[in-house]
Amino acid sequence: MIRIAPISEVEPQAVEHLLDRAFGTDRHERTAYRIRQGMPAIPRLSFAALENGALVGTIQCWPILFDGDDGQDVPMVMLGPVAVEPARQRDGIGRDLMLYALNAAVASGEAGALMLIGDPEYYGRFFGFTADRTAGWRAPGPVEQRRLLAMGDSVPDGAGMLAPRTVALA
């Protein structure tokens, strides 16, 4: 049986090894890493999926900032990566982790401006993320514009850059 627990219950090195297996050892070069560079994950929104004590999945959420070209800065939460042990992918573990993190964001009052980089067909269909307000967004690296997805009442609908948030959530 899968148990979802705070990611703090897992050794950080175990999380890193899972991320390497799920995304490759070159994952640190991806744009998502640049967006959240230097920021710690938000502990109350980051979780591990454990099966008989073994790590089989993780989700981490990060404090980021939409630095609007109009001077308006919008604090946001970036979801991901969602990592699942390769042999366990398609077992619903990633979906369960996403739902758990989304529910935690709602419960903590941090669901107003959520974003991720991902497959719009999947994240739209199952979780309600869209690219409706992200057309003017820029990132500090290459990204397919259609994969910049967001949800929440406070999601900015203008031009601006995604960047690390210098004041993190506790």
Rank of each mutant, 00 (worst) to 15 (best):
Q145Y: 10
I35P: 04
Q60H: 10
A41W: 07
A105P: 06
P12K: 06
L97R: 04
A135N: 11
P6I: 09
A113L: 00
G71Q: 01
A139T: 15
G38N: 12
G80D: 10
H28Y: 11
M151D: 15
E85C: 05
D69M: 00
V106A: 10
P12I: 02
P43L: 04
A41Y: 13
G160R: 00
A41C: 04
I4S: 00
L99R: 14
M76S: 06
D96V: 03
A87E: 15
M98Y: 02
N103Q: 14
T134H: 09
G94I: 05
M76T: 13
F126M: 08
A14W: 12
I117P: 01
A101R: 08
G158K: 03
P81C: 03
I7A: 02
L97A: 00
M98S: 03
A163N: 01
D132A: 14
V74Y: 14
D70R: 08
I35K: 09
I93Y: 13
V143A: 11
R36V: 04
T166N: 14
E11C: 07
P86F: 09
Q37N: 05
P12F: 02
D69P: 01
L116F: 04
P140C: 08
Y33W: 13
V155N: 14
C61I: 00
Q145S: 15
Q37Y: 05
L19H: 07
V10T: 13
V56L: 08
E121A: 11
V167K: 13
E51S: 12
L102Y: 03
P12V: 05
D20N: 15
R34E: 08
P12A: 04
G92Y: 09
P140K: 06
S108F: 03
F127N: 08
V106H: 14
V74P: 15
H28T: 10
R133L: 14
A135C: 09
F127G: 11
A111L: 02
P43F: 01
I2T: 10
R88W: 07
D96Q: 13
D96F: 02
M151A: 15
E121Q: 13
M151L: 15
G57T: 11
